[in-house]
């Protein structure tokens, strides 16, 4: 059971210094086990900071984050991160990259070989195990990064705008692939994105954040509609034309637009 409990947290950068900056204030949220959450919000709303705190890459100023009941004290293989810039190790082959996290957990050679085969098949990348990242396209590199995180077998997957650096077409393909992969390999996912479509298409619930300082504005349920309308059985472009989809997308958009209004 890998639920994420974000227990009333506040993040202040440069606390005690001359110019403390409150990035996130009083955020309280629970992600259920195997739930897919996407987080959207205007830039500067602290969504990436929130994810980094769950990852243990950033400390929490007030409050506490618990994953599977244990307080987060630093990074760990129970919470793998997929980064926007892929962050593959350029000196490691595809195979070595994929098994990186498995080696932390002491997986045997046989287990590692099996996982490489499994994930490369899953990602439709057979035959690339001995290539280096720079020999692959951006979309391929991000598949390897996703495989690396899945292979670590974490309870929680944290994704920080993973498709943000890809071109529009590759991005659409990757979104579809992610739905396919996570259907058979459910994990607790926190997915940070700029794209409203992406957020609604992928998530069970969309968390809309606001800024000055970062807070949760509203949480929108998508899972019910998805199941009722059987989104996962149709191609992505058909889903995005459904009225149930456009309705939810409009709802998220309006919330975001109000945010922008605050600035004008």
């Amino acid at each position: 059971m890998s639920e994420i409990v974000i227990d009333n947290i506040t993040k202040i950068f440069g606390e005690g210094g001359a110019k403390p900056f409150t990035a996130i204030k009083d955020v309280d949220f629970h992600v259920k086990d195997r739930e897919f959450i996407s987080v959207v919000g205007p830039s500067g709303c602290g969504k990436t900071t929130l994810m980094r705190m769950v990852a243990g890459l950033e400390t929490v100023s007030r409050g506490e984050i618990r994953v599977a009941g244990k307080p987060v004290k630093g990074p760990g293989p129970d919470r793998a991160v997929v980064f926007q810039q892929f962050a593959l190790f350029p000196w490691k082959t595809v195979r070595e990259n994929i098994v990186f996290g498995m080696r932390s957990k002491g997986a045997s050679k046989a287990e590692r070989d099996k996982a490489v085969h499994h994930y490369l098949t899953l990602m439709k990348m057979e035959g690339t195990e001995d290539k280096y990242p720079h020999q692959l396209s951006g979309g391929m590199q991000q598949r390897v990064a996703i495989a690396r995180s899945y292979a670590t077998d974490p309870g929680v997957l944290l994704m920080d705008e993973p498709f943000g650096a890809l071109d529009a077409q590759t991005r659409t393909i990757m979104q579809e692939e992610l739905v396919r992969v996570s259907k058979d390999n459910p994990r607790t996912v926190m997915f940070i994105t700029h794209s409203v479509e992406e957020a609604v298409y992928l998530a069970d619930r969309v968390v809309v954040m606001g800024r000055n300082p970062g807070h949760i504005r509203e949480v929108i349920d998508v899972a019910q509609t998805r199941q009722a309308e059987k989104w996962s059985e149709e191609p992505i472009d058909d889903v995005m034309e459904k009225s149930s989809f456009t309705h939810l997308r409009g709802q998220v958009w309006r919330l975001l637009r109000e945010q922008m209004g605050d600035d004008m």
Partner: peptide, 13 residues
């Protein structure tokens, strides 16, 4: 690169 250090740490290195 900081992200590579972080990528290693979040994968349990």
């Amino acid at each position: 690169r900081k992200t590579l250090i972080e990528a290693a740490r979040v994968h349990g290195a």
